[in-house]
Design a protein around this nucleic acid. Structure first.
Length: 338
DNA sequence: AAACAGCCCTGAGTGC
DNA sequence: TGCACTCAGGGCTGTT
């Protein structure tokens, strides 16, 4: 269930290892993990082998690595390696000497000028995740396509309260006042339709509120729509709605502007807190690039808490099926209104 | 255009 | 011990 905080932890962990690294070898152990790649596995291998990775970038739950191929012809379009973790995907940093992980699907061997050899292992139990090569295009609003550089985690340690201070957000690839490189202003074609996430400095709040007001469907459905607001999955939708005292099926259009603004504040707070705790792990489904679990599962108020007392009022949390997913909520705090 | 059902996918967990 | 069954849900496609 990697959502924004989990994907950001992975991205931040990969960034120093991949930036400036050259891909020396690519192995596809499971072709279905290339479902989003437009072309055969051989094409993926050929174009990526010898390439130099420029950065690790994230928007919502999508991760990508802009790269320069080994051979570049004039007029070639810029490319990126796109990764989505789906439900159970992991990207792990391994030594080449280590035996393969059991559910390894794709393996990239990298040579880094400073860090030496490193192996990037794409592990995915359910094969809902994928990797692909894709052309990039300029962002529609001209702003940076997503988070790169040190990003949200900055130089802090997990648990550092400074993590929840947006003023500490890293200035990005160009540095303070610097002009971002071309790759930072470009987004892979298959990610271009994804909305900016709520931690993105270029997130358009006014657009979010107006689109929310135009929808008659339930608020949870809206929060899970990655074309409206990205990065939120089932866990953080339930947590944000609990924090906002909103019922999952409350029509989006029924929210006042003030209530919608409060919801956005809670969404950001939940995401930042989870980020500071290294993400949400239940078992081995989500781990960082070193295989370590996050701690946010200890901070959950609603998700997976059915049968336990609501931390706010003591009423037992309920779980119902909604949109083919579990929805967890407090029947007293989160009443359907209007 | 928006809403929504259906599909993909398999290891872990459970009950017998 | 082993078998059948259930569960988890993000993103995309197609239909209404």
């Amino acid at each position: 269930m990697p959502e924004l905080p989990e994907v950001e932890v992975v991205r931040a962990g990969l960034h120093p290892a991949v930036t400036g690294a050259v891909v020396s070898h690519v192995a596809i152990l499971e072709p279905r993990s290339l479902r989003r790649h437009d072309g055969p596995a051989e094409d993926f291998v050929d174009r990526l082998t010898g390439a130099t990775l420029l950065s690790a970038v994230r928007r919502g739950k999508f991760l990508w690595f802009p790269f320069v191929p080994e051979r570049v012809a004039p007029g070639d379009r810029s490319l990126a390696l796109v990764a989505h973790l789906g439900m159970s995907g992991q990207v792990l940093l391994r030594d080449r000497e280590q035996p393969d992980d059991r559910l390894l699907r794709i393996r990239l061997d990298l040579v880094h000028p400073d860090h030496g050899d490193v192996r990037l292992a794409f592990v995915d139990q359910r094969i809902f995740g994928s990797m692909a090569l894709d052309v990039t295009e300029p962002t529609a609003d001209g702003a940076e396509a997503g988070f790169s550089g040190a990003g949200l985690l900055g130089h802090s340690e997990p648990g550092d309260p400074a993590l929840v201070d947006p003023a500490r957000v890293d200035a990005g690839p160009g540095g303070p006042g610097g002009r971002p490189p071309a790759w930072a202003l470009s987004i892979p074609h298959q990610v271009a339709h994804i909305a900016r996430d709520p931690l993105d400095p270029a997130f358009d709040e006014a657009l979010f509120f107006s689109r929310l007001a135009a929808r008659r469907s339930g608020i949870k459905r809206a929060l899970l729509d990655q074309e409206l607001i990205s990065g939120i999955g089932n866990i953080y939708a339930d947590e944000s709605l609990w924090a906002s005292k909103l019922h999952f099926d409350q029509p989006s259009s029924s929210l006042s502007r003030r209530k919608a603004a409060l919801l956005l504040v809670e969404i950001r707070a939940v995401l930042l807190k989870a980020l500071g705790e290294g993400g949400t792990s239940f078992d081995q489904q989500y781990v960082n690039v070193n295989g370590q679990s996050g701690y946010f599962s200890h901070s959950l108020n609603a998700y997976g808490q059915q049968g336990r007392p609501c931390p706010r009022c003591g009423t037992l949390i309920e779980r119902v099926s909604f949109m083919n997913r579990g929805s967890h909520f407090c029947p007293r705090c989160q009443r359907l209104r209007g």
